[in-house]
Design a protein around this nucleic acid. Structure first.
Lengths: 105, 105
DNA sequence: TAAACTAAGTTACGAAATGTAAGTTAAAAA
DNA sequence: TTTTTAACTTACATTTCGTAACTTAGTTTA
């Protein structure tokens, strides 16, 4: 009666990527390692949610967190290998958006 | 001071795709045209949100809605050309998930 | 010596989005 | 006449989100 259910790995991937802001954060980090405040300014996300998402992405091993011992401390975030491996997917979305998405209305 | 901001088209694409369930719904519809109840059962989404999302995807011209005049009426949903054009992006995510995502803990 | 400044968060709280379960509609089969 | 069905819709409780103010500790400024 049931057809094939959706693959659990794919479903988990979407659960991570579709959690609001996550894809945009990964996209932003494709530019290279960046500090908390830089990401915040570039992406336009709130402190609360940014901290929450970076923690999530760190736990998922998509993002790496490095403390720079200065005063005050700075924190640098960068993509892991797993994170970088998302580049083709993001480029595909970028490609799609440039062809199909229009902003005017 | 500011570096380059994120492209508005890409940002809009993510806004649509990252709205919860949307990507999964599109992925499901890659299988072919399907009725409301089929989608609901396959994806495991609630009635309320499914109706809401299908409406959104229809407005975005990603999904097409067709009434089948039976009793009771059936509704068939299918991807538009714009919707089908997302296949490469979804395949890229699928590819990534098969390499990098594991479910066990 | 004290007040001000900084980066990276955290907290409190109201607003918006989500899940759950029950209700609606119209025609046809029982 | 009651029941059934598909595709929603509604009401309501729970969860998530955005906003803005607060925290922490070492350093420069007054």
């Amino acid at each position: 009666m049931d057809q094939q259910k959706i693959c659990p790995r794919f479903e988990k991937a979407l659960k991570i990527l579709n959690h609001s802001w996550n894809t945009l954060l990964i996209y932003q980090l494709l530019e290279g390692p960046q500090r908390y405040s830089t990401i915040k300014n570039q992406v336009g996300i709130s402190s609360r949610v940014l901290a929450e998402r970076l923690k999530e992405l760190e736990i998922e091993n998509i993002v790496n967190r490095t403390v720079i011992p200065s005063t005050p401390v700075m924190i640098e975030y960068e993509l892991t290998e797993k994170g970088h491996a998302l580049a083709p997917a993001l480029k595909a979305i970028e490609q799609w958006s440039s062809t199909w998405v229009n902003i005017e209305e």
